[in-house]
Design a protein around this nucleic acid. Sequence first.
DNA 1: CTGATCTACAACCATTTGGTTGCACGATAG
DNA 2: CTATCGTGCAACCAAATGGTTGTAGATCAG
Lengths: 110, 110
Amino acid sequence: MVVDQLRDSELDRLFQALADSTRRDIVRRVTVGEYTVSGLAALYAMSFAAVQKHVAVLERASLVSKEKRGREQIVRGDHEGLLKARRLLDEYEQIWRQRAARMADILTEG
Amino acid sequence: MVVDQLRDSELDRLFQALADSTRRDIVRRVTVGEYTVSGLAALYAMSFAAVQKHVAVLERASLVSKEKRGREQIVRGDHEGLLKARRLLDEYEQIWRQRAARMADILTEG
DNA sequence: CTGATCTACAACCATTTGGTTGCACGATAG
DNA sequence: CTATCGTGCAACCAAATGGTTGTAGATCAG
């Protein structure tokens, strides 16, 4: 269904966003404290534009949100994305547990 | 350190592998039951080779393992990859909780 | 033995990704 | 007002991704 397709691309963006160590590092940092985009850029051995793009990717994945303050843009962690990713992995974990239970049933049946 | 770099590329591969809905579907299915590679290929509107590549990506991410049986290759879910991904998200969740606690402290201090 | 089936892999192609430089524009400082 | 700063975006490039077709090696069926 269409809903699933939307959810799919949302998850695609999410895991895609997490599949880069610079972006994972940004997520960590902005969850602990606040950073401007250039404040983040100063941390990595790459151009400002590259970091700005990373932040944009994280924002589209709801892992980060920005708030304009004067000419600066404050980057903060956004819990929503993390929750969605966790929910999927929890679901998979649940499937594993059911599988384990089924195998136990087979071993003890009859 | 070097260890972190290895861990980084491992996580890159993991989340990258999860960032595709076909691959997520495969993970689900092979956790519930067993499939051959061509058994999986029959489920999707793409070539056998494409599905075989997806399985290879999942295997390198430790989300799936294969076992040769005759001329077939049985694909099963591998719990290891999932655990690693979950561990990272749990870590992030932990950071969020600490942040929440810190904010509560600030509100109640003095 | 012969033919069909299952798998892996190479070569190719279009698109996306992760980086770069350069530019434009709003906000701030002097 | 002017110069600087912070940001976003476009254009470009190399490499990776996700798909294709074709080929070749094992294994199984008859």
